[in-house]
């Protein structure tokens, strides 16, 4: 790969709070994505996110340092009650956001019509995984960038990039979803609240932990999700990463409790024509942001300088303290 291609890769970093945004900018983010303090974004956790005043100051801080700010308005509005989401789009434009990240076609239509100067990115929540789906969004709403769902191999991403005119963005680090992004109802089934509608998967109000028989037991609603023996790594109790008895064995039926770490695949993703690399984790701390953004910026700088990419330094920040290449290198069980 050429160093100029590496130079063109953008590092898109998460920020759940204004200090996390400043940390991300200072650690070398090319763009930071964040959301307002309500259910319009998919990380609507208690104590997180930005008021309008926070957002104005954050955009000012980032722009002074040549860093872009993308505002995620990536949940799906309630039927007949889209005012909160539309206001988020209008405010993002008024505050000078560099793009909004949207998933719902109604909101895309609204933004394209009412805010024609606002750059539109398609959220991973829209789950656009084929050239035909992507072209629908680019041709209909003028979407400039699509965040690809985490179901594609590197080769499939290369094929998509060869077939579409817009930019693509892919996740390179952080918590993994169950690969039904934007369509998953597991959290709704157990708690009545979902990432798609309420911006929160497995809401903490429905989570409980306790010790039993020497094991650490995590529950979501009325379901036991995991029983973890002493000294083994823990994970947040999402239904998709729970251990269940099936076919006579106990194990993670849907997905392992691991995080994505595609740092080894950065050159391959660059060759596949990807424009931007996204780090998951708006619900994480400043310490996480500092470490992960710093590591990936160092990796991009190493690629640009044709030196070896530093690897494997982020394992302790991963869920279950374990990492995977996810679907980029498919080795299905």
């Amino acid at each position: 790969m050429t160093s100029s291609a590496a130079n063109d890769l953008e590092l898109i970093c998460p920020a759940g709070t204004p200090p996390a945004l400043r940390v991300a900018v200072d650690a070398g983010a090319h763009a930071v994505y964040c959301g307002f303090q309500d259910e319009t974004n998919a990380r609507n956790f208690p104590g997180l996110n930005f008021s309008r005043a926070d957002m104005a100051a954050a955009i000012d801080y980032a722009h002074q340092r040549n860093c872009k700010v993308f505002i995620a308005v990536n949940t799906f509005p309630r039927a007949g009650d889209a005012a909160l989401w539309r206001r988020a789009i209008d405010d993002a434009a008024a505050l000078g956001a560099d793009a909004v990240i949207l998933a719902d076609i109604g909101l895309l239509a609204y933004a394209a019509e009412r805010q024609p100067d606002l750059r539109l990115h398609l959220s991973v929540q829209a789950a656009a995984s084929s050239p035909e789906a992507i072209r629908f969004y680019t041709d209909t709403f003028g979407v400039k960038r699509v965040v690809l769902p985490r179901v594609l191999s590197v080769a499939e991403i290369a094929d998509i990039n060869a077939a579409v005119a817009c930019e693509t963005e892919v996740f390179v680090f952080g918590g993994l979803c169950v690969m039904e992004e934007g369509r998953c109802s597991l959290s709704s089934y157990v708690t009545g609240r979902s990432p798609n509608m309420h911006g929160v998967c497995s809401p903490p109000s429905h989570v409980s932990y306790h010790e039993a028989d020497g094991s650490f037991v995590s529950r979501l609603g009325n379901f036991t999700i995991n029983r973890i023996p002493a000294r083994q790594p823990a994970a947040y109790p999402t239904l998709c990463k729970g251990a269940f008895r099936a076919g006579g064995t106990v194990g993670q039926v849907f997905e392992d409790a691991v995080s994505l770490d595609a740092s080894k695949l950065l050159p391959a993703l660059s060759r596949a024509g990807v424009k931007a690399l996204k780090i998951e984790g708006r619900q994480r701390s400043r310490a996480y942001t500092r470490a992960v953004v710093g590591a990936f910026r160092a990796a991009l700088d190493a690629m640009a300088n044709n030196t070896e990419i530093p690897l494997g330094i982020l394992l302790q920040l991963s869920e279950g303290q374990s990492a995977t290449h996810g679907a980029y290198v498919k080795t299905w069980r």
């Binding site: 759940g16 997180l48 409980s208």
Partner: peptide, 27 residues
Amino acid sequence: DALFFSREIVVTGDIAAVLALRNAVDA
């Protein structure tokens, strides 16, 4: 989260309140 994953800290009770406190203190 990393301290929780590695079991260096243990949280029980109202997890929403714990997360709100953690996020507010971090911010």
